[in-house]
Write a protein that binds this DNA or RNA. Structure first.
Lengths: 337, 337
DNA sequence: GACTGGCACTCTGGCCGCACGAGTGCCAAC
DNA sequence: GTTGGCACTCGTGCGGCCAGAGTGCCAGTC
């Protein structure tokens, strides 16, 4: 692949992203120092189109990048520019006042939405790499009880449980057993210990204990967190006309959180920033939008995923830089807190 | 106010709501059996316009209702039609599979969004009319602890607390005291007992106890729930062109949950359906949208508020009927569960 | 062989003008 | 109080037109 052709592609992508209009050969040489004439650029463009990196909406219009073009751009051309010290500082001050986990995530999602000018999503930390801090058992009514799981990341998960005939005394014993088995252990270790536990319980606790242990196991093993925070929805109004292609699918995805979580989860490998462009996306409704996501957490421990959702035509370098910076910062922040 | 003029207003509102286009005198007499000629209707329309109930977007166009017109419509003309048995049934089946509180509210908001075709909002039940089920104290780190409050409505509220120098023993005592003071009492009673408690604590618990009691008091007295569930956002795409007036303000409101909660809270009196039309709304950004809300709960106990947000041009009778039906059903459902 | 200037061609988008139709207000008549 | 008629006003849609931007190709130049 020719060096200059790459340069032309880069120019097309950046210009199109900022102007949102098909870009022609003449405008290109005017705005970039390519050192060649429009005619030459036209030849390159024809080649790029032949190879599927760009396309023209109609004859005698400028070119716009295809998904494949964007992909090449982010893979080979994107110089992820580090944030300015001012921005770093802004991130710091934005997060530093946070009170609890909810607050941290809320601030994070707003921050991310603001710096990227896109819709931002932050997944609640998963349990998988945290340890159990406490298990609480509460009677809700004569036939229902509530199991509450508290983890080292400060996350609280609750689940109701049908359970006939239990008295406070039994519950207290149950609570003690459950805590003894799990507290201080990672979720996988706790799960292992729990599955043994049900056999060791005194007979009067057997039935009730098995039910509780089973539920708790489920809570522990539900790897992906099922909650998330969303922010920056008003940014969608920037895509005025593109209702069907951009706004509607995104709103639907936000509604169907399951899809969104899956999407974010799939996109995450280690703590690198992952980009999914348009059709690379497994959900056909979102095929004209891109996902820029990153895991966040402490060192190699991935807590969860955060990222933004936007049109394929987005400023990838800036967005990727922002996502990476925020992910790193939040990860560090949570590990310390 | 003339009977026929009211009838004309009703006709204008219903036609405009369904067609979304200014309605003229001729079309009106064709679609409704008014028993008079277009000319007569024109006279009435002129009078209605004089009185501020309708207006014309430009000369020689049909009329559209003003906010004042809608207000008169809902006050005097809206026959809140009861839902069909089929719809009742649908509501029932939609909700009946719900597992816990979160699930109930999620299903509720989706249901409401679906039947009204608008953006739906369901507030989490407030604490004010529920009783304290349990208080849990958990150590997060050497300098932080977590207070968890569980209420009879199944709601779990948590708050972190800076608290230097505490050991498990102290915490256990603290937990016992807090529970003894609050469990089984309504939030107001519990609050009263808590404020006394801090003076009765043994000296070694005094400092820590006061901090915990204060936080707990705050949690109890935060009358309005600060959480909510939102659904039906994709319905916003139905308002294609009206970006600035409808979609953007709504998205912004959804983002600023505080505003939204306040809005819903203010709109609620007893368990009747309240309607706020356009400019009646205290928030100027939302002055071209209407809020239809209702409290929900058991009998006279209001748990919280639910409702929908939409353009002033909405089908008020249907929407009000749906909101009322869903509110009643959910209220009953929660009281039983 | 790679680049360039020139040229003919093809679209889209905006603009103008026009006619149509819907809707109104008024007035005179019933 | 109601009605039919009439003149008037505008917004909307349609057709035609032009300008501009952009392309592809080709022949010439370094």
């Amino acid at each position: 692949m020719d060096d200059r052709k790459l340069e032309v592609l880069r120019a097309i992508v950046t210009d199109y992203v900022s102007s949102q209009e098909p870009v022609g050969s003449k405008a290109l040489v005017e705005r970039h120092d390519l050192g060649v004439s429009p005619a030459t650029v036209r030849n390159d463009m024809a080649a790029l189109e032949e190879e599927g990196y760009i396309t023209q909406p109609h004859t005698s219009a400028g070119r716009i990048p295809t998904d494949k073009g964007y992909r090449l751009f982010v893979d080979r051309l994107g110089t992820v520019k580090p944030l300015s010290p001012a921005e770093q500082k802004a991130i710091h001050t934005f997060l530093s006042g946070a009170a609890d986990l909810d607050d941290v995530l809320l601030r994070t999602v707003r921050l991310l939405a603001q710096v990227t000018q896109q819709v931002a999503i932050v997944q609640y930390p998963t349990l998988s790499h945290s340890t159990v801090r406490h298990v609480e058992v509460v009677s809700l009514s004569s036939s229902r009880m509530l199991l509450i799981l508290i983890t080292s990341t400060g996350r609280v998960e609750q689940r109701a449980l049908e359970l006939p005939d239990h008295d406070p005394e039994t519950l207290a014993q149950l609570r003690a057993h459950l805590n003894a088995a799990t507290v201080g252990h990672s979720s996988s270790a706790a799960a292992a210990r729990l599955s043994v536990l049900s056999e060791e319980l005194p007979p009067e606790l057997s039935a009730i204990g098995q039910a509780a242990a089973a539920t708790l196991l489920e809570m522990l093993s539900s790897e992906a967190s099922s909650r998330m925070v969303v922010g920056g929805m008003p940014n969608l109004t920037r895509y005025g006309a593109e209702f069907e292609t951009t706004v509607k699918p995104v709103l639907e995805a936000l509604e169907e959180q399951v899809v969104l979580l899956k999407l974010m989860g799939e996109a995450t490998t280690a703590d690198a920033v992952t980009v999914r462009i348009g059709q690379e996306n497994p959900y056909k409704e979102l095929q004209s939008t891109s996902v820029v996501a990153s895991g966040y957490g402490s060192q190699l421990d991935i807590f969860a995923t955060l990222g933004v959702l936007g049109p394929t035509r987005m400023d990838y370098p800036s967005t990727m830089a922002s996502v990476r910076a925020v992910a790193r910062y939040v990860g560090r922040f949570l590990s310390e807190g």
